[in-house]
Design a binder for these strands. Structure first.
Lengths: 205, 205
DNA sequence: ACGGCCGCTTTACACCGTGTCAATTGACTG
DNA sequence: CAGTCAATTGACACGGTGTAAAGCGGCCGT
């Protein structure tokens, strides 16, 4: 009752993700997806009335597969603000390369398609909340560098961890994933975390 | 001899820039540009054989108007590495909002158009050289944080100053241009510049 | 075994934006 | 007056998305 109807739909989503991840230079078209899924282009529209809708559904599907929420919310474990920041950065930066293909496609539609823009923004907003939580934990521990308000620090962390920055550093600058993660992590610390020593006072700029 | 033929061409470039800067949600089409320039769409193709070509030409035109080189190379004035870094960041961040509309259009074409991708990459490479020069000056002064190699520091600065980051911080996070510039500048210092205290070694070269 | 529904196919077409082509106009110029 | 050159008019091809309608095969209930 629950696993016979959705069969094709799931297959479509799966092959969509495959193609997006494969990053077929020159974009992934509806026809490509249909062909790969072994159905006609028109059948695609029986399941998803629009390319944007399909992309969005694929993105959600990907999150389910990757158990995004579980991974991005290891907050419970974290004892200190610093630990929490570390955990969040580690989780997100590990997640990034896995969603990149799909994210890029959605990002590209953002400019021309209303629904895609909304979907993308929602996701990024969620991600930003994770940043905010980490920053707040840091702030609660008095380890947030006094130069910034929590809001400002959240914006900074959020921007540092953006898909575009990952893209630029790894794909354009040729950084390995490991180098990327390590460097970003150290940068975040240097930028946002105040020295342990002076837990009480405040810094000289 | 020199100023009668290019008349229309220049007008096209000018109105292209206007439209791009206006950021007419839903993209700027060839027909829009033609209409605005007071010619037919087809006449556009008498001057620029392709949309990408027009966009690229418009970008170059914009650089000329804004005297990009003059602004981005105030290196001669800078006495120290730190000064040079400051000068570069100030010049680039002031330049950014002026080119944003055009940059965004080119950036969007990058994914689908070979020529656009090349043009964009060239420009970003130029910009990166500016970053590199600043970092090298810093390094020569022994003021580059020892955590990074000059290459790495260049990548970091280059990424921090990306168009996408400007877009995110100002347009998405709502930072004012002033806040953006100040914060980025302070971040760059904190991330890349080591404390003045230990100038001890030799400074020049 | 029949009628009906369902998921998918086939075929065809509309729309939009880019790019091409050919014939024409109109102005300026030698 | 002929030539040329910029631009116009109108028509069309292509690729990609999205729509519409008719048909087909399997499966299900009665």
């Amino acid at each position: 009752m629950s696993s016979d109807a959705p069969e094709t739909r799931t297959r479509i989503l799966q092959t969509t993700l495959n193609l997006l991840e494969g990053g077929t230079e020159r974009g992934v078209r509806m026809a490509d997806i249909a062909k790969q899924a072994g159905i006609t282009r028109q059948a695609l529209y029986l399941h998803f009335s629009t390319r944007a809708e399909l992309l969005i559904a694929a993105t959600r599907h990907l999150d389910d597969l990757k158990a995004a929420n579980d991974r991005l919310m290891p907050s419970r474990k974290a004892k200190s603000g610093v630990e929490r920041l570390n955990a969040y950065i580690a989780a997100w930066t590990a997640y990034l390369p896995e969603i990149y293909g799909t994210a890029k496609a959605l990002l590209a539609m953002k400019d021309t398609d209303q629904a895609a823009a909304i979907a993308w923004n929602e996701r990024m907003q969620d991600m930003k909340e994770g940043c905010e939580a980490a920053i707040n934990a840091l702030s609660a521990d008095k380890r947030l560098l006094p130069d910034y308000t929590p809001d400002q620090a959240t914006d900074i962390l959020w921007t540092m961890l953006s898909v575009r920055n990952w893209e630029q550093l790894t794909l354009e600058c040729g950084w390995s994933q490991e180098k990327y993660t390590n460097t970003i992590s150290r940068m975040a610390h240097r930028l946002l975390v105040s020295d342990e020593a002076r837990v009480e006072g405040n810094a000289r700029t």
